[in-house]
Write a protein that binds this DNA or RNA. Sequence first.
DNA 1: TACAATAATTGACCGTGGTCATAATTATTA
DNA 2: TAATAATTATGACCACGGTCAATTATTGTA
Lengths: 194, 194
Amino acid sequence: MLKQTQKRSIETRAKLLRVATEAIAANGHGALRVEEVVKNAGVAKGTFFAHFKDKDALMELIIGAQIDEYLDAAEEPGCAKNVDELVSRMRPLMDFMTRERYIFDVIVRHSGAAVKEELGPIAQTFERTIEIVAGWIAAGDFRKDVSEVLLAEGVQAFAVQAMALHFCAINNQEEMHLRFKSYLDAWLNPALAS
Amino acid sequence: MLKQTQKRSIETRAKLLRVATEAIAANGHGALRVEEVVKNAGVAKGTFFAHFKDKDALMELIIGAQIDEYLDAAEEPGCAKNVDELVSRMRPLMDFMTRERYIFDVIVRHSGAAVKEELGPIAQTFERTIEIVAGWIAAGDFRKDVSEVLLAEGVQAFAVQAMALHFCAINNQEEMHLRFKSYLDAWLNPALAS
DNA sequence: TACAATAATTGACCGTGGTCATAATTATTA
DNA sequence: TAATAATTATGACCACGGTCAATTATTGTA
């Protein structure tokens, strides 16, 4: 029996990922070109697609890893106990997601699972976000008449909404977070919202 | 002074739109090819892009018109007085939006305005949806502690969320609408949700 | 009607993501 | 070590959206 994947392959894949990550760090996500990646990695174009289904699959990996870093940071300081804390805890992640239109599009495109038990990297971060936020909601000063998971899903829906509206020229960064807060006040503490 | 746009141009544009609409009716939105449109319209490729900024701009027009038809139908029977009615009133529109992944992607991409006072066709339908839903909420049996516009925006956020999750193979059409209803129960009638 | 000015159209050309038959490399077996 | 099988890499090629300098059609003016 052959080894399923040989060392050479693992190295090639790692090199592609490294080169792509560097290019993104230098020029942003939207400017990434497959041809540039393979040239700098010293492999043929076809090799790229032997390792990643398409360009989006690579972006998913990289963006998914970046989101995970932001979630680590958001989780770090313990529970967010109220709406204000929740908003500010989510802020760096939302700023990242809206840094480039291209990033947001990729994220939205991959926020749902493709097949059961086959969550892509970005869909995984969405599940993780639900878990984290649901944990905060369960422990904090929030309404208790609805399950914390449903509430967490709502938080995510409002985050996406606020980010989508952010891409109007009229709406700036600050406005995005204010809008997010208005939603959450009404969603997470309906009794106080009046 | 010259006429700004000549009759010839208007006819060409109309022909392109007609041909594209027919092709979509036959093969779906995602299968539309610019080359096919210009061939069937009997014009050169460049002509297409003289009339539409890009392929997306054409899709925006066509999908925007389709959404408007669904909104007409949703508005027709008067106000939706409770969550169940609201869900079933939105149902045909949401089914259309999720008929093809491609359609949903185009819609999400264009749901926000590009520039103030420059709402694209799809962004306009989103504004119209807010107005319609806000009207229902103001007149119907819904919470009154938050403005109806904020509530309507939330309804839209939940609709998008439910549709995005729909594109998992695990979730079917029915589940999408059930999920939508759960969100709205908690959003529009927090007192009853317990 | 001739001429100038503007609008509309053309199609060769390009950028870029993605494919696939073939070649090269690596591992297994005899 | 030679023969064989499986894995990996190659790069010419294609599909398709989009560009633009050049050409043609239309309209206003002398």
